[in-house]
Design a protein around this nucleic acid. Structure first.
Lengths: 156, 156
DNA sequence: GGCTTGAATCGGAATAATTCCTAACTAAGA
DNA sequence: TCTTAGTTAGGAATTATTCCGATTCAAGCC
């Protein structure tokens, strides 16, 4: 779950580069938010990040967190994911990868699978639009939730 | 976009069967909601269905629509989908298929691709949990949105 | 180091989507 | 027909997210 320091470092460098390129001001808030996201592999949602970041910058506002995250995704520095109807989750991992999503608790785990990376859109979709990314989602019930299966039901 | 009558018919039959099996009462509301979903291929969200259904049952409440839809998905009669951060969309099409999702407007189109159906989870995910379905999502910009590309921006 | 200025932030209000609550209703079985 | 457990209506509540106006601040310039 914890991202190795050298990976965090390289993500940060990319962030600095892309941000400068885009003419963004390097505010304390932006840096703290990006760092917090870059150092975790848990695909947190905005509220979770807000709570974590607030420990370091107690006056930060939710709006700033949301605005920054969507801004980062527009720059291609983070990806959004999540199960429909649940909160958006954010991911600073730009390596080719896919996800296992628990349909009960919403947890997301990275899945690396070259055979998924190799997929290409069937010819017919060309007329629907331009495909930018192929995301494979393995949906199911995570080990934790499977354990609780017949207890507290009523999931979502 | 319109589902052929004989397909609607067979969906309805399955609905009746599964509902009876599950011991659900066959209420007018449930039937109307399911029919409305079964007859369209547009993957509508709950609000859209609510508006359509209200034309036939003017006193129906949003809650009933939501409750019914999630109930149907629990029974495996509908699938939920959509892009994170947008509304949940519902789909009564249970044939093996995948989706093209427009990241600008949220529109979803069905994609049939046997090569996607054949995928199987990489061995490693076994320890993460039980995979129930593999969903391939082609994300990009639909033809409509591509047209408007440099006009009204700001879409999210 | 001090100015200037447009971008960025704060924080609370507003909105959108969804769920909760409970009194009233109704399908289905006896 | 009677009973009753499941279901619904409708408005309130909750949750996630965005908006907005006043204030602050990063960064280029002197």
């Amino acid at each position: 779950m914890k991202v190795p320091p050298e990976v965090v470092e390289s993500r940060l460098e990319r962030f600095m580069g892309v941000a400068a390129q885009a003419g963004l001001k390097l505010t304390h808030q932006r840096l703290v938010i990006y760092k917090e996201l870059a150092r975790t592999g848990e695909h947190p949602d905005a509220e979770t990040l807000f709570r974590r970041v607030r420990k370091k910058v107690p006056t930060i506002s939710r709006d700033t967190v949301y605005r920054t995250l969507w801004g980062l995704q527009e720059l291609g520095l983070v990806e959004t994911l999540g199960h429909p109807g649940r909160q958006v989750r954010f991911d600073a991992n730009l390596d080719k990868h896919h996800h296992f999503v628990c349909t009960r608790c919403g947890k997301v785990e990275d899945v690396y699978a070259p055979e998924f990376d190799r997929l290409s859109p069937p010819g017919r979709v060309k007329k629907l639009g331009r495909v930018e990314r192929i995301a494979v989602e393995l949906r199911g019930v995570c080990a934790d939730c499977a354990g609780k299966e017949r207890v507290g039901r009523k999931g979502r």
